[in-house]
Design a protein around this nucleic acid. Structure first.
Lengths: 224, 224
DNA sequence: GTATGTGAACTCTTTCACAGCC
DNA sequence: GGCTGTGAAAGAGTTCACATAC
């Protein structure tokens, strides 16, 4: 059954794929059992956090022993829905979009890009990586006729919100957005952002402080 | 001066670039003043959160009026260190690495990729986008002679931890990792992950629940 | 009147610590 | 003995609400 649990924190869910990845590695190495202690060491996470996270979903371990690697991995894959294939539509087949199509990391994990859209007449109708590029003007109709599970947005920032709105109107409930914009979606739609510039811009905060103190080899700030 | 404030939560810092982006947009539109109310609406964030976040760094607003767009933007850029140029080294010039080099979004924000490394003899010594690809075997020596601020890792997963360790050994304190691995760095080094698969894998959690209930229009799970 | 800046209240997460089981 | 699962405690982060300033 695996009945829908009521209210599991988002941060917990976002950690499960990380656990699954580590477990897959352990299984590939032939490990059969692992403790929360070991797993935590591997991941830089406290053992208590791992146990607490897992406890939202059931009791997967054996006291005195630990977790069966293969069993826990299967459970996590089931919980996350990684035991099926997911159909993605890519919007934007420019340089970034083509890199996404060419990326070999999605399909082994069950994510298949099955549709591609663009607005450039030079690209519409051409085949890229087994896909015929469709006109983005037909996006809504096309997705209504033959739905996908997830939309990937890889268009320039100026068009991204518009594309996101169209995806939502077409019934897509999960969107992965590569465009560097502040985007909003209605409640109930899940949007994740891939934004390297944002990541860099928060790293520079720390770098700046390192550099500004760099000269004066140590103890320069007030106390201790 | 802008003296190093003691302990500002990481989540606060990660929101500042988002505020800065929204402010840059407002400025481009000619807006001169904005309230936390409006800005919050734009970003899907509470006004109180914006005010609290900003209050860690100073008092930038005027009561009864709001924030001067240009002034606040400049302050944020200074706080984040976006008022200078940052030098990046890219490790891995395969398909992904080339997409990163070709991405036009970094340099307008002051992030210049000034070095590129690879292990493939066919690529070493060739020029890509103004850069001569260096041998990754020389990574540490090269970076010691001529340091960069940030390292970008775009090698296959199997080599990524090794590359990250070498970057750290070379004195790099901020790393942006595109490889889909669970990586660890010593305390003091800042590592950010760009990992679309991880994002997708947490989105499927919600999708699965939508789908599993999809058929049976409502109330079907055990109790309540 | 209007909107900031901020202590206090609240909510959400993480960690502790130990009973229970292997 | 060893490790899980979990209430309780501690710690972070967010929101409230109002004094203060324009």
């Amino acid at each position: 059954m695996t009945v829908n649990p009521p209210d599991i924190p988002g941060v917990v869910i976002s950690r499960l794929p990380v656990y699954a990845r580590a477990l897959a590695l352990l299984r590939a190495e032939g490990r059969e059992v692992v403790s929360s202690q070991e797993l935590g060491q591997e991941l830089g996470v406290t053992p208590a956090q791992i146990r607490k996270d897992l406890s939202y979903f059931g009791r997967f371990g054996k006291q005195g022993r630990g977790y069966n690697v293969g069993l826990l991995l299967d459970q996590l894959r089931t919980i996350l829905g990684l035991d099926r294939e997911w159909r993605l539509a890519l919007v934007g087949v420019g340089r970034l979009g083509q890199a996404i199509l060419g990326y070999g990391g999605f399909s082994p994990q069950g994510f298949k890009v099955v549709r591609a859209f663009d607005s450039d007449p030079a690209r519409i109708g051409t085949a890229i990586d087994h896909l015929i590029v469709e006109d983005v003007a037909d996006l809504e109709e096309s997705l209504r006729n033959d739905p996908v599970d997830i939309g990937i947005v890889a268009v320039p920032g100026d068009y991204a919100q518009e594309v996101i709105d169209t995806l939502v109107a077409s019934g897509v409930q999960s969107i992965l957005n590569y465009a560097p914009i502040v985007s909003r979606v209605p409640a109930g739609v899940h949007l994740k952002q891939i934004d390297p510039v944002l990541e860099l811009q928060s790293m520079t905060y720390h770098l700046k402080r390192l550099q500004d103190q760099g000269g004066q080899d140590a103890l320069s700030s007030g106390k201790a």
